[in-house]
Simulated assay, not measured.
Amino acid sequence: MAYVAAAAVLLGLLVVTNLILTVGVVRRLREHTAELAALRGGGSGGLDVDVAMPAGTPVGGFDATSVADLPVSLATLGERPLVGFFSPNCQPCKEKLPSFVEYAATRPQGRDAVLAVTIGTREETAALAELLGPVATVVVESDQGPVQRAFGVSGFPAFVLVEEGVVSASGFDLAPVVDRDAVALPAAG
C-alpha cells in the first residue's frame, strides 16, 4: 500500500510539473504569435523594427546590374527613386507586391525612377522579375548584396523613398512611403 501511495504522489508531482511547463510554453507562443502578427500587419506592435534606413539617412553608394544588363546606381535612378526589396519566399512580400506594382505604374517619373531588388538567384526570382519588369528597373542580388547594404535592409519587404540621396521615408509597409511620395510630387513638379 505504501508503494501505491508513493507512486500516486510521484505521478501527481509529474502532472503538476507538466502543467506548469505547458502553461509557460503556451504563454510564450501567444507572445510570439502577437509579435509576428504585428510585423505581418506592417505595424511594429511595440517592437522597434526598422527594415531599412530611417528617414534622414544618406543612402550609401552602390553599383549593380539590372536584369536587362544595364548599370544601376543611385545616380541612374534620378532625384526621387522609389525602391522596393522583395524575397521570393516571403509571404508578406507576395501580399504587398501587387500594391507596389500598381503604385509604381502610376508614378510620373516612370519605371526609370523605380528600383525593385529581388533577393536570390535569377531562377528563384524569375516570377518576381517578370511582374516587376514593366514598372521598375529590376536588380537580382544575393542576400546582403550591395544594394541591400546601401539601403540598410534587414527584412522583407522593404520600401524606401529617396530624395536627393537621402531617405525620406522607409518601412515594411508601403502606405507611409506612398503618402510621403504623394506629398513630395507636387513640390517636385
Rank of each mutant, 00 (worst) to 15 (best):
A2L: 12
L13D: 12
L14K: 12
V16M: 14
V16L: 15
T17K: 14
N18E: 14
L21S: 13
G24S: 12
G24E: 06
V25M: 06
V25K: 07
E31H: 09
A34D: 11
A37F: 15
A38M: 10
L39P: 00
R40N: 10
G42M: 05
L47Y: 05
D48H: 14
D50V: 03
D50W: 08
M53G: 09
A55M: 08
G56K: 13
V59I: 10
G61W: 02
F62C: 07
A64V: 08
A64E: 07
T65V: 15
V67A: 04
D69N: 09
D69A: 14
V72M: 10
S73I: 08
L82R: 03
C90H: 03
C90L: 05
C90P: 01
P92L: 02
Y103D: 01
Y103A: 07
Y103L: 08
R107W: 05
P108V: 08
V117H: 03
T121R: 12
R122L: 11
E124N: 06
A126N: 08
L128K: 00
A129H: 10
L131K: 14
L132A: 04
V135M: 06
T137G: 06
V139D: 00
V139T: 01
P146E: 15
V147C: 07
V147W: 01
F151R: 04
L161N: 05
V167Y: 00
V167W: 01
S170M: 05
S170D: 01
F172A: 10
F172T: 14
A175S: 14
P176E: 05
V183F: 13
A184C: 04
A184K: 05
L185N: 07
G189W: 14
G189L: 10
